[in-house]
Nucleic acid binder design. Sequence first.
DNA 1: AATCCGGTTCTTTTT
DNA 2: GAACCGGATT
Length: 807
Amino acid sequence: MTDFKKRYIEVRKKIIEHDFARLNTEQRQAVMSTEGPLLILAGAGSGKTTVLINRIACILKYGKAADSDEIPAYADERDLEFLENYSGLYSPEDKARAEELCSEDPAEPWQVIAITFTNKAAGELVSRLEKMLGGRSGEIWASTFHSACVRILRRDITALGLFSRNFTIYDTSDSTSLIKHIMRETDTDEKKYAPRAVLSAISAAKDAMLTPEEYLRSAGIDPWKKTVAELWKEYNRRMIQADSLDFDDLILYTVTLFERCPDVLEYYRRRFRYVLVDEYQDTNMLQYKFISLLSGGYRNICVVGDDDQGIYKFRGASIENILGFESQYSDARVIKLEQNYRSTSTILQAANAVIRVNAQRKNKELWTDNEKGGPISLYTAMNENDEAQYAAACILKGHTEGEKWSDYAVLYRINALSNRLEYAMKRNGIPYRVYGGMRFYDRAEIKDMLAYLCVINNPDDELRLRRIINNPPRGIGDTTLDKASAIAEREGKSLYRVLTECGDYPELRTAYSKIKAFTDIIEELRAASTDTLDELYDRLVRLSGYMTMLEAKDTQDNITRAENVSELKTNIISFVRERGGVCTLADFLDEMALYSDTDAMDGDDCVALMTIHSAKGLEFPNVFIVGAEDGIFPGLKAIGEQDEIEEERRLCYVAITRAKRRLWITNARQRMLFGRTQSNMVSRFVKDIPDELLDKSGASQTGYSAAYSSYGTPRAENRGRYMGGYSSGVRPENSVKSRPSSLSRPAPISLDYKAGESVIHKAFGKGMILSAEKMGPDMVVEIAFEKEGTKKLMISSAGRYLTKIGK
DNA sequence: AATCCGGTTCTTTTT
DNA sequence: GAACCGGATT
């Protein structure tokens, strides 16, 4: 190598490094290793999204210059001199010249694809790219596995000869309904073949890239597998007939397409010079295959992940993908990001101590420059009510000291633990939000409306057709549908086609007018499907009679459902606006199929209640981990299974590393769960945390515990009185008998509240006192809030949030 | 078609 | 303890 070249490369590297000076050494190294296979092992809170964003910026700006020996052919001594004297402080012209001289084949945005698991992660990537790169970022494919595959399939799926470009996407509940429907038709015992188990067997088989025939062969004489193979075959047949793909199919058929059609694969390989994958530890075999194929041309594959945070084995993620990356690519470079910017060193030490026990992991240890911070509080409660009350009391105390509600998160292993916590939050007047419950798009009425839209878009979608044909009731029952189905089968036509031609079939004579009325509606809507989306939706709501059905009975349930139906229109309008006004029905349905609104973490000031799984990727200043007991965390099923325990341990690691400043861990001596009382040992994971990091003083305050031990069972006379006193809309849990908290009890309590007075509550807003009843040194007030309904509150805990106002 | 009863099951979850 | 599903009943 000439001296000139050496000097050039050296100064170029310096200038690029200077551009990423805000990053730490390892981060910068990861950003600048643009060529060839790269594995970034990014510990919790180590800034991995920052690295991804900067790496893309580097690729677009400098191309391979940061990671290559090539230099511009035209560069001469004067250029080199210029670079060597360049310090970044010169005029815009100089800057442009330096950038030009330092770049080598810079990539176009459309040559970059960044793949994540969730919409939320993809969304974050998109917005941070936009912030850093501006409008140019729009052409980067930053999307989930599934939406990337949909994009590919919408263009090329016809090459497989099985589906049209207009295919429909089935979600998990659609798949479940279809498999149940098939099981009913084939008289398969749902006890023996639980639909969920059947589906996950099919999913696993697809992940192994088996066909139903191969699966059947591998089944041998296993009757269960044999049946599953049959069901799967029929399931596939129906999916093809309905022009539909389920979530697994989206990836599976993309991989199949790549394997069967070399020209298609070649097209994408040439296009995507740089492939980046986030959360690589969560990929399954199929996704791995997809990535390998896609990046197989340029081999510029960068995967980011943390083997210690792999917590989705149960849904097919194979941690071997990340552990085996180096053997897949012998020339792979590995960079570890071990500096944590999130947590106190105490919290980090605890996390390290827990995860260190795992055998199956890359050797990696987080460290931080952050302050030591306070110890981790360990509290052993009498029972689950005491535990919940403890958390609530700590949160209240923190709030009076200036913390926001949203600075707190309470994490649990299983959803079943959320109940008591909710009660405790309500009782204490703490605003909270439970994440991961029923989602907007899972509601029956929303699914119904979307099913209508699906049928308008693709009438061959028999599953959705069946969902809506008699909803609202149109007198088209199972008998009629069975007859029509049989005809469809016989004639090789779709069910919908048979219905439109029902006049031709004497078997359908009796139901003729009813069927005709239905198909007329659908036909009219189909004709209107070129309208703007919101007009089409208005027409649908009117013609289908759905709203009329809901308005017929004004129960609370129906009112809510009607509101949701209207709310969907708001979503449609804002979706169309986001797309700049141009958007087809098919676009909208794609979005709906792949979107989950868990992403919409609204900015309300609320305490967050969620499972540890859903907390992954998030961070909070203050975190509670409740239910830290053997049998719950780790779960009963995991105990004794080495692999499972390791996964639970990773889960514990994830939980601990969510906390930035303070961490509480709680367990209960006795716990009522699934209708039985159990007493568990403190979690083995807690025992792995060194004593000097823990503050166990909370556990010795037995008096505190005892005060709450009777929550779950209010005495009979109390229960009777309360039950009699409910006004409409009161939920019983709001009135669970409460006692003052010794932690949050202010010195003198004002008991000056009377029925009829108006008050403002800090979290619940305006309300009127319905009743006020003394209870020892405390007082229970029942307040009808304008927005939040009626609640019963204890003055001892809620008093400080109450202000009296005039009428 | 709507409602009631009784049996069953209960990790974790995204797409 | 609660939610969900299916079958039976009206």
